[in-house]
Simulated assay, not measured.
Amino acid sequence: MAERRYLAEALEILDEDSQRALDEDINPRQEILALKEHTYARKKLNLSSSEFEIELISFWIMNQLDEEFGAVLCSSSGGLLRANHPIFYHPDQFFNFHLSFPLRGMSELLGVFKEYDAGRMRGADLWARYCCIDGESGLVMRHNRTKHLFDLYFGDGPSESLENEAFEKYVRPFLGCYVVFDPDVYPDGYYDTYASLLLESKHWRKPELEDEGKAIAKKRGPKNSPAKREFLLRYHKGLPEGLSADAVAAELSASGYPITGRSVLNYDRELRERKISK
């Protein structure tokens, strides 16, 4: 998915049809490699960082899939459990913003590209910064930096009790499990998946089935994360005046739906934007 979204942006910059990126018959990686032969590639594209940008998109998609659809944990016995939000904590918090293109123009990514251009960051480093997950295997584990990051994220400052409480409740019971995703809860097709993550290309058209002329159907449609569903259930009209996002986050977390104030603000903004669009 990341390669196809990168390809779509590159094709748009080159004034080509970005719809080609949705064609399931193409190999997106080969198409991206072929871009260097385009007449205007050297002037309009920064192909030297293409691999890093694709990795960045892939990492962002991973975080958004958990945020919007929810990941599950697979134990050594094969049992499946809903993954708790703290397990996915990452200091760069890629689940708190939407991507816009070109990526180098995003204020949220200025620091990331600065590190990459200086040779201090690679695509694999994004995954390595997970607090409780091995980015390569998806194994839930405790890193050396877990306590410090939990202090910063779940408390008001360094506090062993805060880290212990959050870690013991939401992470320790799942050490040794693997993060997995159930494809049955996602929309069908690239277009619907991108649309659910607000990752569409502005020139894309929804593909249709050639034989029936009908739009591709979703399996179940978007499925929000447990914390987001609970927020929408309790505050379907948005945050009440005078009630802070941090207070709501504390309320939901105490009820077993760990969430941050920043995520609450994001959900509230989405609600208000939907009302305006209607």
Score class of each variant (00 low, 15 high):
residue 126 L to A: 04
residue 55 E to H: 03
residue 40 Y to I: 01
residue 20 R to F: 11
residue 61 I to G: 02
residue 16 E to I: 09
residue 132 C to G: 03
residue 122 R to I: 00
residue 65 L to T: 05
residue 34 A to T: 08
residue 17 D to H: 06
residue 21 A to T: 10
residue 105 G to I: 00
residue 111 G to W: 04
residue 119 G to H: 06
residue 16 E to K: 13
residue 101 F to L: 03
residue 106 M to G: 05
residue 58 S to W: 01
residue 47 L to R: 02
residue 140 V to I: 08
residue 106 M to R: 05
residue 69 F to W: 10
residue 72 V to H: 10
residue 148 H to E: 14
residue 140 V to F: 00
residue 105 G to Q: 03
residue 35 L to T: 00
residue 13 I to A: 13
residue 125 D to N: 08
residue 19 Q to C: 13
residue 20 R to E: 11
residue 139 L to S: 09
residue 100 S to W: 06
residue 14 L to V: 01
residue 48 S to Y: 09
residue 23 D to Q: 05
residue 95 F to K: 05
residue 144 N to T: 15
residue 155 G to V: 05
residue 58 S to A: 12
residue 111 G to D: 07
residue 109 L to M: 05
residue 72 V to D: 11
residue 95 F to E: 12
residue 104 R to F: 01
residue 138 G to L: 06
residue 27 N to F: 09
residue 56 L to I: 03
residue 126 L to I: 02
residue 32 I to Y: 00
residue 129 R to W: 01
residue 92 D to E: 12
residue 141 M to R: 15
residue 133 I to E: 05
residue 77 S to K: 15
residue 31 E to G: 07
residue 76 S to A: 14
residue 95 F to A: 10
residue 100 S to N: 09
residue 98 H to Y: 07
residue 156 D to Y: 01
residue 51 E to D: 13
residue 16 E to V: 06
residue 61 I to K: 03
residue 78 G to H: 13
residue 75 S to E: 06
residue 22 L to I: 09
residue 112 V to G: 01
residue 149 L to G: 06
residue 48 S to P: 04
residue 29 R to S: 11
residue 84 N to C: 09
residue 44 K to T: 02
residue 99 L to A: 02
residue 156 D to M: 06
residue 103 L to D: 02
residue 112 V to F: 04
residue 36 K to V: 12
residue 114 K to D: 08
residue 76 S to D: 14
residue 32 I to A: 06
residue 114 K to Q: 12
residue 73 L to W: 04
residue 116 Y to R: 15
residue 106 M to A: 11
residue 42 R to S: 15
residue 48 S to D: 11
residue 83 A to K: 07
residue 99 L to C: 03
residue 75 S to F: 10
residue 65 L to R: 12
residue 47 L to W: 11
residue 40 Y to H: 11
residue 94 F to V: 07
residue 86 P to E: 02
residue 145 R to V: 10
residue 151 D to S: 07
residue 149 L to E: 13
residue 136 E to S: 14
residue 123 G to R: 00
residue 56 L to F: 00
residue 26 I to Y: 08
residue 125 D to H: 12
residue 38 H to W: 11
residue 96 N to H: 07
residue 88 F to D: 00
residue 80 L to I: 12
residue 83 A to M: 15
residue 44 K to Y: 13
residue 31 E to V: 05
residue 30 Q to H: 14
residue 113 F to D: 08
residue 95 F to Y: 07
residue 74 C to H: 08
residue 20 R to I: 11
residue 141 M to N: 14
residue 74 C to R: 15
residue 131 C to D: 06
residue 129 R to V: 02
residue 43 K to Y: 04
residue 15 D to M: 09
